[in-house]
């Protein structure tokens, strides 16, 4: 108890912990322009600040919710759970870090994968949960990613990832490092099958995730002002002993240096990706059409035509 609190008679003393509490979750402050924003309005704007267009970080599930059509969603690899192969312990046990992260995010690991539809077209989408141990890539993330790709191959659908990750998960050591190889190898199958892979990078996409799956998109897209790079800015600063240039490793910097195809505002995300996919998948659709026209059975042709129609 401070001297002031002792001085003030108990009757008129107010409990500091109760002081000035505002009902939580009603208002939010933009970390970029400090504008106070009404949460409902912010959500309606996809968590993009209406004042300064700052793209706030969002959870994996929110991302998939606003990206996919409402119906036809099915989660892939949901039953996978992290194990602790090295019984890793630093100041805290890895096991405890896992349960803490699970409690905090309500996710079992840092990647959520779903089959769904984008404006009527079949698609498999994966999103990183940054609040789960910095969105770090461990064995479960890698395995879910691969299963997502396998689903894409099965149903002949494009694959998209939304990355938000600090990189590989140190607590799994080589198990996590090798997820870089695993995810990249799986992408070769998608590529060989002629299915598009869209890498949609959000803030931040660093280290092992950026140096594997994130940079391998047929189309690499970034959200405005996202931090994307291999080494963290602090590490680089310590290594080269120079101040880093303004905007270093931001989306605009990457666009300028030719690392990404485009920067897309979150509010345009669905429209832009759907439009790109309809072009990348055009030949495939026509091929299906031709195949079915040559097919002997009339019925099949009709159903196939209908399918194509729905997709468009």
């Amino acid at each position: 108890m401070s001297w002031y609190e002792k001085l003030v008679p108990a009757k008129i003393r107010t409990d500091a912990s109760n002081k000035g509490t505002v009902p939580e979750g009603l208002w939010n402050k933009c970390p970029s322009c400090s504008a106070i924003l009404y949460n409902t309005e912010l959500e309606r704007n996809f968590n993009v600040c209406p004042k300064c267009d700052h793209h706030m970080r969002i959870s994996a599930r929110t991302r998939l919710q606003i990206f996919l059509d409402e119906d036809g969603q099915e989660e892939i690899g949901k039953g996978l759970k992290p194990s602790d192969p090295l019984r890793f312990k630093d100041s805290k046990k890895y096991k405890d870090r896992i349960s803490q992260a699970q409690k905090k995010t309500k996710e079992t690991d840092a990647l959520v994968v779903m089959q769904g539809k984008l404006v009527g077209r079949d698609i498999v989408a994966a999103a990183f949960e940054f609040s789960y141990m910095g969105g770090s890539m461990g064995s479960v993330v890698g395995e879910r990613f691969v299963r997502g790709i396998n689903r894409s191959l099965e149903i002949g659908a494009p694959f998209i990832t939304f990355t938000a990750s600090g990189g590989a998960r140190m607590q799994e050591s080589l198990f996590s490092l090798f997820q870089m190889a695993k995810t990249s190898a799986a992408l070769t199958r998608l590529s060989d099958a002629g299915l598009p892979f869209i890498s949609f990078m959000t803030d931040p996409t660093m280290g092992g995730v950026s140096a594997s799956l994130a940079m391998l998109g047929d189309i690499n897209i970034a959200e405005p002002n996202a931090l994307i790079g291999f080494a963290g800015p602090r590490v680089i600063e310590q290594t080269v002993r120079e101040t880093l240039p303004e905007g270093f490793q931001r989306s605009e910097f990457l666009l300028e240096h030719g690392a990404i195809d485009m920067i897309v505002d979150r509010r345009e995300m669905r429209k832009t990706v759907a439009s790109i996919l309809s072009m990348l998948m055009a030949r495939r659709q026509n091929k299906n059409l031709v195949d079915s026209e040559n097919a002997p059975e009339q019925e099949e042709q009709v159903s196939s035509d209908q399918e194509t129609h729905q997709e468009e």
Binding site: A211, S212, F230
Partner: peptide, 15 residues
């Protein structure tokens, strides 16, 4: 981990 390395796409090269 250098400035030039990032500019020339260290991540992409590894990936």
């Amino acid at each position: 981990p250098g400035i030039g390395a990032e500019e020339r796409g260290q991540s992409e090269a590894i990936a």
